[in-house]
Structure formats: C-alpha cells, structure tokens
Simulated scan of single mutants.
Amino acid sequence: MTLSTRQGIAPRETCWKNPVHFLAFGCGSGLTPKAPGTFGTVAAVFFYLLLQGLSLWTYLGVIVVASVLGFWLCGRTAKDLGVHDHPAIVWDEFCGFWITMIAAPAGWPWILLGFVLFRLFDIWKPWPISWLDKKVHGGIGIMVDDLVAGVFAFLCLQAIHYVYLKKVLT
C-alpha cells in the first residue's frame, strides 16, 4: 500500500497543514514512498549538524525534550491518521539517531557510522527492541523502540571509537 491509500487521513493531505503532523513526519521527510525511516534518519542528520556544537548537557536536554514531545506528537498523529505507527511518522527516527550521536567523535565518518548503526538496530530490532515494538502502544510505543535502538547504536559507536583510539594511541 502506498502512503496515501492506507486507512484514515492521507499524510500528504495533512503534513503541510498541521504543525503536529509536520513534526511527526520529520518535516516531510517521512512522506517518501520507499524507506521513510531511512529518509527520516537522513533528515535527522541535517538537524544533528545544527545540534552537534551544543554542550553535552544542552544536547542531552534537547534529546529529552524532543523525546517527551515525540511521545505526544507521534501518538496524536497516529490517532489522527487512524493508523498506529504509520510509516510516515519518523520523529522517532530523529530522536533515535540523536541518541546514537551523543558524545560522538567529530567528522563525517562517525556520522555515517552512527547512521548505519542506528538504521541496522532500527530495522533488525533485536530483543528487547522487538518486544517493545510489539508490546508498547500509543505515542510511547512508537517512540520507545527507536530510542532503545539509538541506545544500542550509541553503545556500539562508542565501543568502536574506544577500540579505534586504543589502536591509534598504542
């Protein structure tokens, strides 16, 4: 099914008219007909570039606010559309990617690695991500699996950076 033929309101009709939907759809990035989660994460990279210069505590604060806001944005949009976790809802990808990039090393190789790691965990959904995806509903359910995928990707990125530094410094 295409994004416009699912039950409920078509996302393209509402994205540009409703600011809640606009944000939940990742500023429109989730409206792509194929791989909306990947395109949502690409858009999250752009916003990460604007955020990466913040202090660690400010960056963490942005993630907390964006995630709490995301519980409401995603839940409200899903309810309005009449579809739980509609593929066009990608605010969860934004927050998950931003978690991946907490205290990430500077440079494009690390951004690309963070992108790949986050997408792998978001698509693969190892336990407990898969359990959360199936068992938790509403806005929290839409968000939580991506937040945990972001934590997993963060841990992998930091471990890779640690091993890389050990190798370079010895």
Rank of each mutant, 00 (worst) to 15 (best):
A88L: 06
F46Y: 13
A44W: 12
K17G: 08
F97G: 04
H86G: 08
I99K: 02
W131Y: 01
V42P: 10
G107D: 05
A24V: 02
V68N: 09
P87R: 02
L31P: 04
L73G: 14
A66D: 09
G26S: 00
I9V: 14
G139L: 01
T14A: 13
S4Q: 12
T41K: 12
L73H: 14
L132G: 04
A78G: 15
K167I: 15
F154G: 03
A24F: 02
S130D: 05
E13C: 06
G61F: 06
G61T: 05
F22S: 03
T14Q: 11
I99Y: 04
C15W: 07
D85G: 11
E13Q: 11
G150Q: 07
W108G: 00
L23S: 01
D122Q: 04
T41G: 11
W72A: 14
P105K: 07
L69I: 13
Q7C: 09
T14K: 11
M143L: 07
F22T: 03
A106V: 10
D145H: 03
F46M: 13
P36R: 10
D122H: 01
R12Y: 11
D133F: 01
D85C: 10
V136T: 00
F97I: 05
V148W: 03
A88Q: 02
L50R: 11
M143N: 01
T58K: 11
M101I: 07
V163E: 14
R119E: 07
